[in-house]
Every structure is written in C-alpha cells, then in structure tokens.
C-alpha cells in the first residue's frame, strides 16, 4: 500500500516534470525539471530495494551532473533561447506523434511482458544486504567491466580538459605593452595617458556623481560622469557648476570643430578623449548615434548635422 502511494505520487510528479523539461522555454527551468525527475527516480529506486543506486543517483546525477549542466548553461548564456524555425517541415508535429506512438508501443509491449508478482531481492541479497551483495558482484564476476570504467572515467576527464582548453592566438599584452600603447596614443592624438581622475570624495559626499575639484576649486571636467550628468539633466537636478563646465567644454569642442581639426593641435577635450577611448575610459554614445543628446541644458544635435549648419554659417 505504501509503495503504491509513493509510486503514484512520484509517477505524476516525474511525468509532469519531464514534460516541463521538454516544453519549458528557458534552459534553466529545464535543468531544474530534470533535477526533479532525477530525485523522484531516486526515491523510486529506494522503494524498489535498491538503496545503493538511490544514493548513487542523488550523488552522481543530482549532485554532479546537474551542477555540470547548470555550469555550462551559465557559461554558454542562460538566455540562449531556442530558435523556433523548423528546419524540417512538420518536424515538431511528427515528433510528437512518433513519441506518442512509441510510448504506447513500449507501454503495451514491455508492460505486458511481465506476469506474476515480483520475486523480490531477498534471496539475492542474503549475504549481507544490498550494498555488500552488489560489491561482491562488482568485484568478482564483473571486475573487468569495473576496471574498464575506471579507464573510461580517466579518458573522460582528460578529454574534457583537452576539449575545454583554449590556446591563446597571440601573447597576452603585458603592462609594458599597454603602457607603450597609451603613450603612442598620446603622441598621436594627445590623449591623456594617465587614468581618468576619480570622482570627488570630499567631506560631504562620497559618490560617483560628485565631480573632482582641481586645486583652484573648479571642477575637473574629466571627472564628470556623463551618464549621470545626462540623467540629472533630464530630471532637472544637475548642479549649476557642473552644467557650466559641460557647457564650456561643449563650446570648446565646437570651436575645435570649426577650426577643421578636432583635438589635433589644441588641448584635447573630453569628447576627444571619449572618441579614441582606451580600455579604461567608458564609451560615450555622444557622437554619431543619430539621436539628440541633452548636454548642459540644451539639445546637442548629432555631429554631421551641426557641422552642416556651421558650413552654412561660413
């Protein structure tokens, strides 16, 4: 009686979970559903006089294999969703039909192959329980197969290492190379080779949105975070001194543009800095994105357009 209650509960749970595994959109849900199926099968093993296999099922499958699946899912990208394109016409439909037919065939064929009540494992496990009897079988009659599986496991571990290993195509850039690159960029475009100044950390503020102050008390333009400034601008809470600095900078940029060359001769502005942004400067979608950006209280049109108007002005 107890067994059939366990069976019916777990059978329903495992079939629903298996259907969820097949039909859920997200791969992580599929993995969790597979975990549910494996756990319920472990309980079914335990019910059927196989305590050793139940333990192995939980340790190996839900422990190791599921972790491996989740790890690879995270590596490959959780949001790698399925494509809905059918490469073979009507494949889904016929797969489901074939699956149903196969299930019916198996259930009717194998399900009716067994007659009579189970013999039970009492006689087979006489010599000291399930685990010792299995061990006796493994280490006497099937010892060769057991040794071969050890070779298989070693091969699998080696194979995984070989397959997952990636050779570098070129040497990793050293600190020296990176420094050379920075100064080469400095010679070419006048890009500041030093890191960007950090935000202001002063008595009253310790946040990324506070610009750093120069020794004379004015704001260091390089330390103004453009994204935050734009957000504050849209909310109307941009501090006036920051707005002033941004405005001056924008004016300088326009003047340099009107001269023909960007920051080639004069002092480089922040905009130049962003244009040839190195790895340590954050990219600024200010130019060429085609959309109007708001800087310091007015709408800045994309570069091409503003250049055109200046051409007209000449």
């Amino acid at each position: 009686m107890g067994e059939s209650i366990t069976f019916w509960v777990l059978a329903v749970v495992s079939v629903i979970a298996a259907l969820g595994l097949v039909f859920s959109r997200r791969a992580v849900y599929s993995a969790l559903m597979l975990g549910v199926v494996m756990l319920s099968l472990a309980v079914l093993y335990a019910v059927q006089d196989a305590p050793f296999l139940a333990a192995v099922q939980i340790i190996v499958y839900t422990g190791a294999v599921m972790m491996l699946f989740l790890f690879v899912l995270m590596l490959v990208g959780v949001d790698s969703s399925d494509s809905l394109v059918e490469t073979i016409k009507g494949q889904r439909f016929w797969a489901v039909v074939g699956g149903l037919g196969f299930a019916a065939l198996l259930a009717l064929g194998i399900g009716n192959a067994v007659a009579g009540s189970p013999k039970g494992l009492a006689a087979a496990t006489e010599g000291g329980g399930n685990v010792s009897s299995l061990a006796q079988l493994i280490f006497t009659r099937h010892v060769f197969a057991f040794e071969v599986t050890s070779a298989l496991l070693i091969t699998a571990a080696l194979g995984a290492m070989v397959l997952a290993h990636r050779e570098r195509a070129e040497a990793k850039p050293t600190q020296r190379d990176l420094s050379r690159q920075r100064f080469a960029a400095f010679g070419r475009t006048g890009k500041n080779p030093a890191p960007l100044p950090g935000p202001g950390t002063y008595a009253r503020h310790n946040a990324i949105d506070m610009p750093a102050l120069l020794p004379d008390g004015t704001i260091a333009p390089l330390s103004v975070n453009r994204y935050i400034a734009r957000y504050e601008e849209s909310k109307g809470i941009l501090p006036p001194e920051v707005a002033e600095v941004l405005e001056q900078e924008e004016a300088a940029r326009r003047a340099a543009q009107a001269n023909g060359h960007g920051g080639e001769h004069g002092t480089p502005t922040v905009a130049d800095e962003a244009r040839d942004a190195g790895p340590d400067t954050e990219p600024m979608p200010e130019d060429g994105t085609g959309q109007d950006t708001v800087v310091a209280g007015r709408v800045v049109r994309p570069r091409g357009e503003s250049a055109a108007t200046e051409e007209d002005g000449k």
Binding site: E3, S4, F7, A11, S14, V15, A18, L19, L21, V22, A27, V37, L44, Q48, F69, V72, L73, V76, S80, S81, D82, S83, Q91, R92, A95, V96, G98, G99, L100, F102, A103, L106, A107, I110, G111, N112, A113, V114, S117, P118
Partner: peptide, 27 residues
C-alpha cells in the same frame, strides 16, 4: 506493480525522445 514501473519508464523514455527531436538548444 511491476507493470506500473515499466509503463512509467516507457513514458519517461518517450518524453525524452520527443525532447531530443523537438528541442534545438544543444544543452
């Protein structure tokens, strides 16, 4: 009872087979 277990096993096997045929994500 044995028959029940076998039918359950057949069902799970068929569901897995349908999944192999239908799904496109290799994992």
């Amino acid at each position: 009872m044995t028959t029940h277990y076998l039918v359950l096993s057949a069902l799970l096997f068929a569901i897995g087979g349908v999944g192999v045929l239908v799904r496109r994500n290799a994992i």
